[in-house]
């Protein structure tokens, strides 16, 4: 079974040379630490920055320079700054190649719920609805089951939706799965030590298993 760092590490392997990538809050943020060496990737922060660098050294924080998670960050050679409308303009126009975000639930037809739990304080969707509605390639980083052991990969979402038919790939602590255009979770890889049967039990939506399922490998 994978931990959060390993989920991030596995997702990082999906990032290709020349990609502009938007990383959501939570596990997706960790992906930045595992981007393969030797490839050029530009991180977009939707508050208005392309070319997000690492956290600043102590004492070099700049209150005017933050990411979408409101963390102090740095720029890199080649960075650019723009306003919020242009930021979502480039997202809507599909200039951003890959979006990685977290989810509470994903359905077998690619719907995602990640912003609201009825009865709990609702903080808002931020940029998530814009991102999922427009991104050409979205990978979800999520837990396969909740704390009660219930599957979060469902026939249909029970929580209020963030977007419909938009998720293509999911990486969880148990597996890597594609969401097929015609519907269904296609099992691609399983986490080390996790059986296909266990993944079947942990997936409430339609799971498609064809042939031998290899173990996930992490490029170190």
């Amino acid at each position: 079974m994978f931990n959060k760092e390993e989920i991030a590490q596995r997702i990082a392997q999906e990032i290709k040379d020349g990609y502009y990538v938007n990383l959501g809050i939570g596990i997706p943020t960790l992906v930045a630490n595992y981007i393969p060496k030797g490839i050029n990737v530009v991180l977009q922060s939707e508050n208005g920055l392309l070319g997000m660098g690492p956290f600043p050294f102590e004492g070099e924080e700049d209150a005017d320079l933050i990411n979408a998670g409101k963390q102090t960050i740095t720029t890199l050679p080649g960075s650019s700054i723009f306003d919020s409308a242009m930021s979502f303009g480039m997202i809507r126009a599909q200039k951003v190649d890959l979006t990685i975000l977290g989810a509470m639930e994903v359905s077998e037809n690619g719907d995602i719920a990640n912003w609201k739990i009825p009865g709990k304080m609702v903080k808002g969707m931020g940029g998530a609805m814009d991102l999922v509605a427009s991104a050409k390639n979205i990978i979800v980083a999520m837990q396969h089951v909740n704390k009660a052991g219930e599957s979060k990969l469902l026939p249909s979402c029970t929580l209020p939706l963030t977007g419909v038919k938009c998720i293509r790939k999911i990486v969880t602590e148990l597996a890597v799965l594609d969401v097929l255009p015609e519907g269904g979770f296609k099992l691609l890889e399983r986490a080390p030590g996790v059986s296909v049967d266990f993944i079947k039990q942990s997936t409430a939506g339609r799971l498609i298993v064809e042939g031998e399922i290899p173990e996930m490998k992490l490029n170190m």
Binding site: A85, D111, G126, S134, G163
Partner: peptide, 28 residues
């Protein structure tokens, strides 16, 4: 949605009465 918020401001400043966005389609 954040992009809708920004673009509704932009529209006002550009003299356009409305925008069309995919953000939120199929949701509440």
């Amino acid at each position: 949605p954040q992009g809708t918020l920004a673009t509704r401001c932009l529209a006002a400043g550009y003299g356009m009465p409305a925008i069309f966005t995919p953000a939120g389609v199929g949701t509440e």
